[in-house]
Nucleic acid binder design. Sequence first.
DNA 1: TCTTGATAAACGAACGTTCGTTCATGTAGC
DNA 2: GCTACATGAACGAACGTTCGTTTATCAAGA
Lengths: 216, 216
Amino acid sequence: MSTPPRSRLRATDAQLPPTPAAPAEGTRRRILETALQLFASRGYHDTSIRDLATALELRPSALYAHFAAKDHVLAELVRIGHEAHFEALETAFRDARPTPSAQVQALVHAHTRVHAENPQLAMVVNEEFYALSEELAAPAQVLRDKANAMLLDTIRRGMAQGQFSPLHPEITAAAIVGMGSRIPHWFEPGGPIAVETLADTHAQLALRMLGHTAGT
Amino acid sequence: MSTPPRSRLRATDAQLPPTPAAPAEGTRRRILETALQLFASRGYHDTSIRDLATALELRPSALYAHFAAKDHVLAELVRIGHEAHFEALETAFRDARPTPSAQVQALVHAHTRVHAENPQLAMVVNEEFYALSEELAAPAQVLRDKANAMLLDTIRRGMAQGQFSPLHPEITAAAIVGMGSRIPHWFEPGGPIAVETLADTHAQLALRMLGHTAGT
DNA sequence: TCTTGATAAACGAACGTTCGTTCATGTAGC
DNA sequence: GCTACATGAACGAACGTTCGTTTATCAAGA
């Protein structure tokens, strides 16, 4: 930390989706929430164990009763973030009408919503993922690959059925993912744009990018 | 550095556009190029002065004959990156036919090309910008704001002329910028997709997102 | 009711290492 | 002999982590 630089993300109350591995109460949960806030605003490598302990009003040593090492805290946040993201995509996909355009719309809507509702977690997951060892990153990498495949498969299906005419499926898929990933860098929940507006707009933008024509 | 984690970006030869402040030869230039490579792959905060010196086959103290402090190296890279980016946008805009759609196409093409041709610099500029103090970041921030304004103004002009029907100008502008910013995370120059293909595709995608209809 | 023992959590101090940076000194080329 | 650059040694501070001890909580036995 040293001379505190600018913050990457406005420090609102850190939101962490509930998860079996991190019960809604208790010190472990508090550590994760506070770490999320610090990692999102200053970055993982610029946040020390002492910074984290100070924010928690604990001594550094106390943290080691709950996590084996600093990178395990990050790994847990990254894991939680990927699971919440993947589950949201899966649910949206399952509940959508079984047409490629409805499915793409549902996927992009969910992808956008997750990023807009949990900007801190999205920031940490996207920007600090690389800081984990291959071993600690593995569970998240699996979900990442499956999510990308879900979108690309749906696009390919839409092409086969003549509903989509993308200029280039892979580039378009990357562009769609990219516009979502950037949300935490500019969007503020509670600001002038509603989350629902953003999600709807992104879903429509995705269809436009895919050259979706007529019908459902 | 300690236990080296995974790399954020494949370590190709770091490309740095030539610039008045950093002549094509000399130790200062070598420092910037090597720092660019390390910052892009491991991140600024996880790269130590000793890492940088080792890669340069110099002693840490030697660096201080060329830069006042570690963050000045980053600031210089960020400055160079923003100037190259802004100059590319300005040139593209100036040379485009004076219609909003041609101008948006030119802006997005240039934006994409800069990110695809210099992925390391784009990565550092986008991901480590926040690590700079407000003072050191200021020159870059000015260019950042001007570039965003250039795109949004053009979009608004296109709307006024009835050429664009975006769902939401600000969201669409952010989405267009976002798909460019994410390029260094997945695109590999020299890979299966040519830079020119990517730039053309992104330019067309932007027009689709804006609901561009007919004509030029 | 009082005592006891077990358990979990936090503390306080210290560890060895690495951090960014300084500075007196050396050296090569003009 | 001046300038530009590199060196080696050292600085205090901060780093992640360990460990022995203390404190808080609570159930079981007398």
